Amino acid sequence: MNNMIAWFRYLNVLVKKEFLTIFKDPSNRVILFAPALIQALLFGYAATYDVNHVDYAVLDQSRGQHAYGLLSKLDGSGIFKRTATLQNADQIKQLIDQREALAVITIPADFENKLNQGQSSPIQVIVDGRNSSTAAAAAAYINAVVSQYNQQELAVSAPVNIETRTWYNPNQESRWGIMPSLIAALSMMQTLLLSALSVAREREQGTFDQLLVTPYTPLHIMIGKALPPIFVGLIQSSIILLIIMFWFQIPMNGSLALLYFGLVSFNVAVVGIGLSISAIALNMQQAMLFTFLLIMPLMLLSGLLTPVQNMPQILEMATYVNPLRFGIDLAQRVYLEGAQFDQVKMDFVPMIVIAILSLPLAAWLFKNRL
């Protein structure tokens, strides 16, 4: 019993020492928490795939009532802004090349006559495909306006109509899908960097040798180095969570306890990777370099930017050693879907396995690296 009390007393002293190292400098306190706040706001406003503004141009060769009515619906939609009215088809290429318009609509000369005779009349839509997602969204919006014009003004409708209901994101705002992912993604960067610098800092300052001759075991050192970054990661996740809930007012449908249980598992896995880097690196510069080299692949293979299912099979297999993939999936499903533990339990398995493998590796490296 006394040995266990002494064990926890040693650990408590080491954890306090790590917290003092992290927080004693006022500038460090700002650097640890201000980026999470700023990045969450920037992502919320800037990183969106919603198309809310489309510059377009028109080549109206008909100049009839129906052409005017169709273009009026586009102009009145609040999304489309006409930047040019063309006189001939030769002007289209220059307009698209100079990015003065995302789309160019061409209405043929016989458009009015064909509609008056009850015939169908095609219109041409040319979109700038250099940004394929924006171009596809703009084309879909134009198609929706044309379909609405057909039904309301020409009384022409298809025999089968599709009625769409969107679950978990009724307004189809891309922000709703991105922001819950940031609860894990943004906190990972600081957590990984803090844990990667912990041992490298002491090795560079010459205090790690002194730490090894104290009564601390490698397990003491590993836990003492791991707890402060985990705590910082949870604080950053909490800041981002509050911004999502109260600033962007995205409703949370799931359990807060389950979300934090998942975040703890995620941070433990990330800290295990960071401590392994720290034990390998000879100095802080190496630790920072290894961390920055690792962060980008972790982000790209996480599903934050592109779905994992769309990746080549070999890269999809590589995502199983990426804790961020499962942290993002868990945060999204719990936050938006209201998923229960049974539905996200398979997200915990890879994170726990990564932690079980990386933390003992870090402890072994602490003992044998010097």
Rank of each mutant, 00 (worst) to 15 (best):
G177R: 09
K114S: 10
L197I: 04
G69Q: 13
H220G: 10
Y49S: 15
H66F: 12
L234W: 02
F33V: 04
Q205F: 12
N131R: 13
F19Q: 09
Q119F: 09
V199Y: 11
I277Y: 05
A269T: 08
P26W: 01
L241T: 03
L74D: 04
G64R: 02
L263C: 09
V15T: 09
V125E: 01
Q309E: 15
Q340E: 13
I96C: 06
V13C: 08
V349Y: 08
I22D: 06
Y260E: 01
A137I: 12
L241M: 14
G64P: 06
A257D: 00
I352K: 06
V30Q: 02
A363G: 11
R325M: 13
T214D: 02
W7M: 12
A140M: 12
L197R: 00
W167S: 01
P122V: 06
L300C: 02
N267R: 00
L42D: 10
L102W: 11
I107G: 10
L194H: 12
I92C: 05
T291M: 04
P312H: 04
S237W: 00
V264Q: 11
F326A: 10
S120V: 06
I22F: 09
L275C: 04
Q190T: 15
T134R: 09
N169K: 03
L258Q: 08
L315W: 14
N283D: 15
A200G: 03
E100L: 08
L361F: 10
I142S: 06
A47W: 07
L361R: 01
A109R: 14
Q65W: 04
T166N: 12
L194W: 13
L241E: 02
I5Q: 08
V13N: 08
M189L: 15
S265L: 14
I280W: 11
Y56E: 09
P297D: 12
P180R: 01
I314L: 14
L330G: 05
A57S: 14
T291H: 03
V127T: 15
A158W: 00
L259D: 02
L359W: 02
L193E: 10
A196N: 11
V13F: 12
Y320N: 13
L186H: 05
A287F: 09
L115C: 07
T166S: 10
Q190N: 14
S276F: 11
I314F: 14
L304V: 05
T106G: 05
M4Q: 05
Q117K: 13
H220W: 11
E202A: 00
L294D: 04
Q98H: 04
P108C: 11
W7Q: 12
M346Y: 15
R9K: 14
K17Y: 07
E112L: 05
S157R: 15
A158L: 09
N52H: 10
Y49K: 11
I273M: 13
T166H: 10
A138K: 09
L298R: 06
Q249C: 05
L336Q: 06
